[in-house]
Design a protein around this nucleic acid. Structure first.
Length: 109
DNA sequence: ACAATGACATAAG
DNA sequence: GCTTATGCCATTG
């Protein structure tokens, strides 16, 4: 278990329900702004019973980046919709559901 | 240490 | 907007 992976999981756990973020942002919050791929790897090894909301992590376009040939993508979408996240033409409007620490404070004002 | 892989990101055509 | 190419980071053989 690398420190990087622990950080990634810690960050993903902070993502509020009904919101999504991208790998790059998670990587940045984990301390490695360019480790988006590392984040993807970290999430790929998560167990099903994990307490980490990995489904709130999508790619920069707001699309589900999980393998299309796997059930994973399907359950991810189901979980997101269940939290109130809307899918627009197969992708999520990051302008509304995209989560960023800065935006979080702006909205909280 | 090197090469290859991956749930990525960004730039260029 | 889509397809390629390049860069980046962590992990594995």
């Amino acid at each position: 278990m690398s420190a990087f992976r622990s950080q990634v999981l810690r960050v993903v756990r902070r993502i509020p329900p009904g919101r999504v973020t991208n790998y790059g942002a998670v990587a940045a919050m984990a301390g490695k702004p360019r480790a988006a791929r590392g984040v993807g790897w970290a999430l790929s090894g998560l167990p099903e019973d994990t307490d980490v909301p990995w489904w709130r992590v999508v790619n920069r376009r707001g699309e589900i980046s999980t393998p299309r040939f796997n059930h994973l993508a399907r359950i991810q979408r189901a979980l997101l919709e269940d939290e109130g996240v809307e899918f627009r033409e197969g992708r999520i409007p990051l302008e509304r559901f995209g989560w960023d620490p800065d935006v979080e404070e702006l909205e909280g004002l």
